[in-house]
Structure formats: C-alpha cells, structure tokens
C-alpha cells in the first residue's frame, strides 16, 4: 500500500487501514449477494451480470479515485506496486482461474465471504484452494521457466502503449458503460433463473 496522505497518516497506519478496507470489502461483497455461487456463475450463463457490473465499477472507481488522489498529492502513484506483466503465463492462469470459477462457483475472495456466513460449498472451495496452492508449490520447478517467461516488467497499459493515462481512464469508463448496457440487453433475452 502506498503512502496515503503522507503528512497526516504515517506508514504505521498501513496495516490498520488494510484491515478496515478489507472488512468493508467483505461486507460489500456479502451485501451484494456475492456469497452465493449461483449468483456468481450467472455471468457465464447470462442470467445475472452482477459480477461484471460490480468488478468493472470497482475498477473504474478505483482508477478515477487513485488518479484524483494522486493529482491532489494524497497518494503517490509511483509508490504503488504492480505485479509484473508476464503475458502468456497470465493468459494460462486466467483460463485456469476461469475454469475453477465456473465449476466451483466462487472466486478466492467470495469463497471467504461464503465461509463468513457458514456456507458448506465455501468451505469445500477453500479446501480446494489450499490443495491447489500445495500442488502448485510442489510442482513449481516443473513450470518455473514458463512462469517467468514473456515478462514485460511492472508496466501499465498506458505506459506500454505510451498513451495518456487520463484519456485511457475516460476510454475505460465509456467501455464499462457500454458493457453494462450490452449485458442488460443480453439479460433481457435470457430466461430469468430463480436462485
């Protein structure tokens, strides 16, 4: 986490702020119904696009908010860490993640939310995560080369294509709104599912 409002909140507050935002995140996930695997997988079958709406909204809210806070000097964007962009490993990892999502009905965060309200499938899914982490760690030497391949380093899309990050955010916002409208049309055509 970067230095949020460095003159007022020192670095020692980082963990406390992280816990508070984490609790708020869990609360919002649960209150928007994300502890239900049937609601989550709706995005794959076309009867509920809450996942797409929530996460896309979160992405544009966060990017606009961060850029504003950076502009006002409340946070130093350069101090924020990004994961290195390893193109092909991310594609493969995304496919595996998507497969787990559509079969298990959770993503890692929402399964914790489901455990929070005592859902058995949440517990099962979490056990699967631990098992997967164990298998991955034990087998890591086998695909270590692939894991580190096609590494572009810590870049963002505007940096990579050398475009203005502010106009990029405008573009993403417009794409998000268009996507919301499109999925609304799709949802109307699909027979609604009771869950």
């Amino acid at each position: 986490m970067g230095p949020l409002i460095p003159e007022i909140l020192s670095d020692q507050w980082n963990n406390i702020i992280a816990i508070i935002t984490g609790m708020a995140f869990g609360f919002v996930l649960e209150s928007s119904g994300f502890s239900s695997s049937r609601k989550l997988v709706g995005v794959f079958y076309g009867y509920d696009f809450a996942v797409l709406r929530v996460f896309f909204t979160a992405a544009i809210t966060a990017s606009i908010g961060l850029l504003f806070m950076d502009y006002f000097g409340w946070i130093d964007m350069a101090a924020l860490d990004g994961l290195p962009a390893r193109v092909w490993p991310i594609v493969v990892g995304g496919l595996i993640m998507g497969l787990g999502f559509v079969t298990g009905g959770f993503c890692p965060g929402t399964c914790i939310t489901a455990i929070g309200i005592g859902k058995l499938d949440g517990f099962m899914f979490f056990g699967g995560i631990i098992l997967g982490v164990f298998v991955f760690s034990e087998m890591f030497p086998l695909f270590e080369n692939f894991y580190n391949s096609s590494n572009l380093g810590d870049v963002t899309v505007p940096e990579f294509f050398n475009i203005n990050p502010y106009w990029f955010t405008v573009g993403i916002s417009i794409i998000a709104i268009v996507a919301f409208y499109a999925v609304m049309l799709i949802q109307k055509r699909i027979k609604s599912v009771e869950y």
Binding site: F68, Y71, M77, A78, P158, Y166, T169, S173, A176
Partner: peptide, 28 residues
C-alpha cells in the same frame, strides 16, 4: 464516471519542468 474521468483529463498540468524530467509515469 465518464464526467469525472473527463474532468481528470482536462485538469491543468501540475508538474513543472523539473518534475517533468523525473516524471516517468507521465502523471500530472
């Protein structure tokens, strides 16, 4: 969000010349 991001894009550039040299991420 569209209005907010447009406001962001049209905000005046805050960085002066020294900052611009150090400004690797082309933020304002």
């Amino acid at each position: 969000p569209i209005v907010l991001s447009l406001v962001l894009a049209f905000l005046p550039d805050k960085s002066n010349s020294i900052d611009t040299k150090r400004n690797h991420k082309s933020l304002k």
